[in-house]
Nucleic acid binder design. Structure first.
Lengths: 221, 221, 221, 221
DNA sequence: CATGAATGAGGGTTCATTCAT
DNA sequence: AATGAATGAACCCTCATTCAT
């Protein structure tokens, strides 16, 4: 699953560094968050008990509530950094310019996107599972998600899609439809590969190439 | 969202009729199941309380447990018929033969598929949400799902895909990959259309045509 | 465990016959009472559920309450006939006279008593267990028991003991104490033999003889 | 009910002291156990509710379950120390030797035994009632009881009985029978005196002497 | 700052009892 | 007379949260 070091990755890493530096979490907090991630993703938020988290984290029950006012607070704290990272590549300033320069072909762009998202999923799988589970039930998360992905990310991607459409390299469907179709192909691969059948033996490189081919042909004008 | 009456639909309806006739539920049971569907899909299984379900169903809490031994039993009873219907079109005997006859073109087949699934999703949205939420946490459901979808459905679809591949109308990728890509496009549409942004104003016909186009071009040989 | 047919037994049988004839229980009632005896003695009254009794009896839950107004009513109905039989030998009219005639020696009397009680315990073990368990908690039973055993039985026995004391064949302790000591020996045997260690292999005849010997010597003047 | 200070008592007290020191119960735990003893012995285990115990103990219901995982756990915790004390006099090391030295006559031994057991019953009456009630229904207790009393205690007593038999001071019945008869007399007294008719006005000293006399004569060779 | 005992509301579930059929 | 669906109170137990130490 190696991928060519790309500019995009460079930014993500930078962003992550920033995020991580901001955290200033005590050792106990890290243990709590880690335990929460593990347990939330295993049994679901509602079915997890703070006492089990405390036990797995090796802290007293009360300690959790010293750092996170409520259980829901803990959930948000678990999920927020990953949500940030999720949209990081799209909100970096200069993102558009760079696109112009570095990903001359739509295929390269798609490939970079796919590789980057695979990397992201691999590094954040448990939290992603939690996010998927809880977004429908936590208005806070839903709102945050729609605001970020539905606006910022979509906005950026639309600009990019429109540019490629103007260049005539992809079909002239509504940009949102293009994004939906491309996104479905990529996320469909990630879902099957990492969530539904992670145990299955995969030839990742081939699957990725097939997926890219599918998108390219599917969107060919 | 009208769709041309097709043979496929005929069978599904027949199957559903059979299922529905088998149910023989009392009036109270229907109320309980309805309330459970509503509340489970709204708050998630673990966060729903049997007392709230009883209240919404207009029955005493004890009545729930007369019909469903445990809360999990109620979940299974809520979800099982929909799981059956989910795979119904694929397990009907004669399904393969009919394919040969009636859906000569891959595009027609895909269109029928999409229409049928849209119909299914529209009729079963709340239960589908519950299924998606709970499959990861309920081994019973997971097993049932994998057994049915992972075996029966996949099996059928692979035969069909291989036939179209032999005919040279679609690209010669591994059949499972073809199914993944097609499924992603269809399910991606359904997810966005009915789960993520159901409120958005959609031009369904257009979106469907675009999606079919995407699949056709994507899989063109 | 054969025992010589005695007059005493004759009366008991007569009494039982009377009791049994009075019962006029429907077939369902018999099944309910039998099931109740089995379950009450197995798990205790409070830990038994009427639904389990109904199931074991093969009747509907409601049927129990048609015959017995409450669960406690059922308990009383289970236990009352045995309580009657328990005191039967002592309240039969003419009991005292017969004593004079038939059991000239105190030893014969004691032996008859022991044999009779063994027989009684063997025939009524489950109900006796229920009685022992529930007398402390059911004022109705307690009162009934004290009234019958504490008065009628004790009264009769005291007359008998006093007669033997006047004859000089047993020691001149307070009659109640004599009864307590004799009763302890007999009931102690029954408790160990039939309740505490019923599985142990017993040489009943020997144990009985030893017990009688113990009482005779213990009360010798 | 004063009794002559004996060596035997010395040991028991010592043992109890050890037990009591081990307990390290918080104030709340003591209140919970006390309330549980009171209510269990009054209404029986199955008919007692944890909420009532909590109320009588003056704690929240949850507090009970912080200290005792289940209601049955609470029962065991209530009953276990008394079970230990029950067999304490028999399992103390050196018990046998001391018998040789201090209770030269069988009568003295029996008297010490009776006094000691009276003391024990007086101090532990409610828990003893609970034990008697629940041993038949709680396999854990039954097993524990049989293992301890049925083995350790019986073993010790048999050695003692056999010694007195060899000395020719008591009749040559099977030792187990001797123990049963002696035990019946003692326990019969205790049962009548403290459980069945505790309100009756008793001349304890006399009753005890009569009981001892009964045993002595009953076992005289 | 960390602890963990304490809380009490609410969880799922059982149960004796009722009543329309 | 018999049924068994329906009831709702009470059951045991868990939980997120608080607070004195």
């Amino acid at each position: 699953m190696d991928q060519p070091k790309s500019e995009l990755d460079g930014w993500v890493e930078e962003l992550l560094k920033i995020n991580d530096e901001n955290e200033k979490m005590t050792e106990k907090q890290i243990k709590i968050i880690s335990a929460a991630i593990e347990i939330f993703s295993e049994k679901g938020y509602a079915a997890s008990s703070t006492s089990e988290i405390a036990q797995k984290a090796g802290v007293a029950e009360g300690t959790i509530f010293r750092h996170y006012k409520t259980k829901k607070d803990l959930l948000i704290s678990v999920v927020a950094p990953t949500m940030s990272k999720l949209i990081a590549p799209f909100v970096l300033k200069g993102f558009g310019d760079v696109m112009n320069t570095h990903y001359a072909s739509f295929e390269d762009f798609t490939r970079a996107m796919i590789m980057n998202r695979i990397d992201f999923v691999k590094k954040n799988l448990p939290v992603i599972k939690i996010l998927l589970q809880e977004i429908p039930f936590q208005p806070e998360l839903k709102e945050q998600f729609l605001k970020n992905v539905g606006s910022k990310v979509l906005e950026r991607l639309m600009v990019i899609v429109e540019r490629y459409q103007k260049e005539g390299v992809i079909v002239d469907l509504p940009p949102q439809t293009v994004i939906r179709l491309t996104g479905s192909a990529i996320l469909g691969f990630l879902a099957v590969r990492y969530i539904m059948l992670p145990e299955h033996s995969w030839d990742d490189e081939q699957e990725i190439e097939h997926t890219i081919r599918f998108i390219m042909y599917g969107l060919s004008s």
